[in-house]
Design a protein around this nucleic acid. Sequence first.
RNA 1: GCGGGUAUGGCGGAAUUGGCAGACGCGCUAGAUUCAGGUUCUAGUGGGGGCAACUUCGUGGAGGUUCAAGUCCUCUUACCCGCACCA
Length: 801
Amino acid sequence: MKYDFAAIEQKWQEKWEKAGVFHAADHSDKPKFYGLVEFPYPSGAGMHVGHIKAYSGLEVVSRKRRMQGYNVLFPIGFDAYGLPTENYAIKTGIHPREVTDRNIARFTQQLKRVGFSFDWDRVVDTTEEKYYKWTQWIFLQMFEKGLVFRDTALVNYCPSCKVVLSNEDSQGGKCDICKSDIVQRSKDVWYLRITAYADRLLDGLETVEYPGNIKMQQVNWIGRSTGAFVNFGISGSDEKLRIYTTRPDTLFGVTFMVIAPEHPLIEKNRDRITNMDALEAYRAECAKKTEFERTQMNKDKTGVRIEGLCGIHPITGKQIPIYISDYVMMGYGTGAIMAVPAHDERDYAFAKKFGIDIIEVIRGGNVEKEAYTGEGEMVNSDFLNGISGKKESIARMIAELEKLGVGEEGVQYKMKDWAFNRQRYWGEPIPIVHCPTCGMVPVPYSELPLRLPAMENFAPGEGGESPLAKVESFVHCKCPRCGGAAKRETDTMPQWAGSSWYFLRYIDPLNEDALADPEKLRYWLPVDWYNGGMEHVTRHLIYSRFWHKFLFDLGVVPTDEPYAKRSAQGLILGPDGQKMSKSRGNVIDPLSVVDEFGADTLRVYILFMGDYGAAAPWSESSMRGCKRFLDRIVGLADTAKGNGVTSKNLESAFHRTIKKVSADIEEMKFNTAIAAMMELLNEIDKAGSVTVDEVKTLVSLLCPFAPHVCEEIWEKLGGQGLCSLAAWPVYDEAKTVSDTVEIAVQICGKLRAVVEMPTAASREEIAALAKADARVVAALEGKTIVKEIVVPGKIVNLVVK
RNA sequence: GCGGGUAUGGCGGAAUUGGCAGACGCGCUAGAUUCAGGUUCUAGUGGGGGCAACUUCGUGGAGGUUCAAGUCCUCUUACCCGCACCA
């Protein structure tokens, strides 16, 4: 039966808003549930079906929790600083503030039309002064604790966006925002010392409930390796060349050393090196390549030997040639390696190309043919000879190095410190003053927020200078320490800043004295369940864990980890099975679906499409099936008569469905939860009649998925109050089992009959009933049973000869 | 190259973790209702064989374990995702 979804949806959205049913209470005797979804970037394109899927999962969980009597915090906000808005503003001349406000208003309206149960009184916007005041406050706290520093570095620069990008934003050598090629530039940039938290970010993973693949990605991203630092000598000098290796056990197999082209050793020894021309030519060649190109050419090794300098082996004292090559990176370890060609594939390729000796120190392979990286007995290795455990030889070698004072155990991370700046307008100003006498001075806390100045032209300056540098009144200031003339920092923070702590602000969005009240933080934290996209697993998720741990150390937040549990939704693909994109023209607009089929249908379909965590293509006809389901539910309500239960069988089906839907929601198996309700509806149709009580139960189960139509039916059936606040149905385990059960009877593993028998039958009774079935009797004709397998409730298998 | 994942009808996907493969939905076929249908209802729908009861094959491929395998083991193929000269 078709229903007027447009009228119903508007009616109930208004009622919910008026009654404030989705407001979280700050203090409550109820158990709390904090469900968090990744807040959107309010782009000009408006909402995407992907947003709906991303929010629908915890929307259902949150609605279920409310019905279960929890005090639920399910907030939403806007991560509104960022380049697309700024670029749009530059193009159109409309101020980013105005663009942002407009986009937020549009998103808000769209989200409300889908009927999400967000607490709209707690909306945060990262670009508001009252919000970014605290982003700046956290930055200054980090500055005070020595976690903020400046360094000259080769940075990824996007010539199109005119902005310095982090490694994370320039993966694959392309700008994450505009997809143009990245070039390398030398620049003074801000860093956050996230590596200081590397171990804790790793160890903390043990204490949280994240899916295995997310943990794995974070572990790989942090990339901890243990090994040793070893100091090699330099011929004719008391200088040391320090290297990092994970295989100190192979130290006797070293036949050459390699340093990165940018390694300072070369500059320091200019006068002693006899082939500077060749080295500089090679360096110039490398500088032309982006980091991406450098890492792409991973097989063909190039390099130049440094003439006039030699390494000295720390134990044998042997002279060792040193090369420069771009297969060694300045950014990892010490920018220098000891090369053991016999047992490392890269060193092997290099040695073959340059005709360098290969010394086997671990037996087990054929070093004439290829590098051997496995384990084996140590040879040619002095005091290590005869040992065959890698662990033991490494430990012995490290002990020896420490005894001789030429090395020690060490740990390295792939993760680099976080380049924390943008030369753009639409971001949080970095609250630092550069004073000619005092150096870098933080803006006093009392002067926060340091406001983003009004500007007419926010196009970036040539050469990557921030547009803020053009605002004289902003730049020129007095040094907060000495009172002398000084200049403000003009860089702004990167887009990941505001999103690194937004979940804390939801807890107390209007607080003017603290980022949030400690009492409230203690009540709500940690976030019980956080859902978001896989694309944020290595950036946002690590950054925000880092900030949270820092705030924990400050005593600002009560938990070491911000998120107790994390899940991720899969993409919605276009009807053609391809990723949705404007250029492919396969984008589905959620609001046009709401117009045509209603918000409830959209919500049910998106969760019914398939595994919540997997990608699935859009199918309009499949969605129509969900509409049909809701229409049938509406029709069912009209035929409901009387109270109590219709029949024992149907009662049992209800209890089974309550059990399944309850459990499936907890595991985000929304597709099978909906399928179970469809099955129940089919059962009811078969039974031919249904009571008002039963329909109310079904509608309560469906309410988190399709809340508008459920409220309407609930009201029509005389339900108390709102369906959204009704008690979540409970099931009786005893009633989930029906009296009889169908048992499959196999003979030699082949299905021969299906026999209905009492659920309570004993093994013997089951076997007897099975053997009494006419078809089984026929099949057993002339055979002898050699084995009987009886699995109560499931199957009987008779093995015959 | 390393790490992780996936593979089931015409399609999206189920399968209580070793126990009737294909739930649920779409699509399709036939019939009914309707002036009409992108409506609604009824029945059917994995492949082959048979009028039928029934029978046989069947979860990317090849082996294996088991009374019993989509599920466990070995090998293999294809695709997807992440990292990528990390010393």
